[in-house]
Simulated assay, not measured.
Amino acid sequence: MSEKNMLSHVNEHGEANMVDVTDKSVTQRVAYAQGRVNMSAQTLALINSKQHAKGDVFAVARIAGIQGAKKCSDLIPLCHPLMLTKVQIDFATLKDGSGIEITAMCKLAGQTGVEMEALTAVSVAALTLFDMCKAVDPSMVIEGIKVTEKLGGKTGHWQRREEQTHD
C-alpha cells in the first residue's frame, strides 16, 4: 500500500493512532457542513411560527450545535481537541416545505482541519430538532449530512460539487 493511500489514523501495526500534527503549519481553517431534517408541514409551521410547546426550537438547536462542535473531540475518539474561534449554525426551510436545512460553519487558526466539528455541529443540531419535535412528529428523518466546503491547510480550498455522491 502506498503511503498516500494509508489510513492516517492507523499505525504500521494496524492499531488506532492519533495523527501527529506537531510539524504542520498553523493556518486559518474553515469548514462548512450541511444536513436536513425532513418533517411534516404541521411540525414545520409550529417551529417557524414559534408556537411549539417546547419553545424556540431553533434557539435550542443552535446552542446544541455550537456545543456539539466544541465537544467533538470528546465524542470522536481520534479527533484533536481544537480551539475553535467561530461556530455558526443556520437554519433554512426547504423550498418544497418538507423540512429544515441546517448549515454549520466552524473556524480556527490551527494545525488540523475542522470538518469533524462542522459535521458534529450539524448532527447535534439535527438531533436536537428531532428531540424537541418527536412528540408531535415521530416520523421525522435526519439525512444528507455532509461537508460542503473547506478552506485552509495543505489541500487549500475544496468545495462539494452537486454530482459528488458516494452510493
Rank of each mutant, 00 (worst) to 15 (best):
K54Q: 09
V114Q: 00
G65L: 00
E101W: 03
V87K: 00
K70G: 05
G68C: 02
S49D: 14
E115M: 07
A69K: 05
M83V: 14
A53C: 13
I76M: 13
G68F: 02
M105C: 13
M116R: 03
M116T: 09
D90L: 13
A104V: 01
L75R: 11
V114A: 01
V60R: 03
H52L: 03
S73M: 06
E101G: 05
A121C: 08
A59E: 12
T103E: 06
D56A: 15
M83Y: 12
K71V: 02
T43V: 10
D96P: 10
A104E: 09
I63D: 06
I47G: 01
A109P: 00
E101H: 04
G68N: 01
V60F: 05
Q51S: 08
Q51A: 09
M105K: 15
G55M: 11
A59N: 06
T112S: 09
V60I: 15
L44H: 13
A104F: 03
A104I: 02
T103G: 01
R62H: 11
D96Y: 08
L46N: 06
A121T: 09
D56V: 14
P77E: 12
A53V: 14
Q111Y: 07
V87T: 15
M83R: 11
K107C: 10
A118S: 09
M116N: 03
A118N: 08
T93D: 04
I66N: 00
I89H: 00
A64P: 14
D74F: 02
A69D: 04
L84M: 08
M116D: 04
I47Q: 01
T120L: 03
V114D: 00
L78W: 10
A45M: 07
A118I: 06
L84Y: 14
F58P: 00
Q111D: 04
F91I: 10
G110H: 02
S49Y: 14
T112Y: 07
T93W: 02
T103V: 10
K54L: 13
T93I: 09
K71D: 15
K107Y: 10
T112R: 04
I102R: 06
G55Q: 14
A104C: 07
E115H: 09
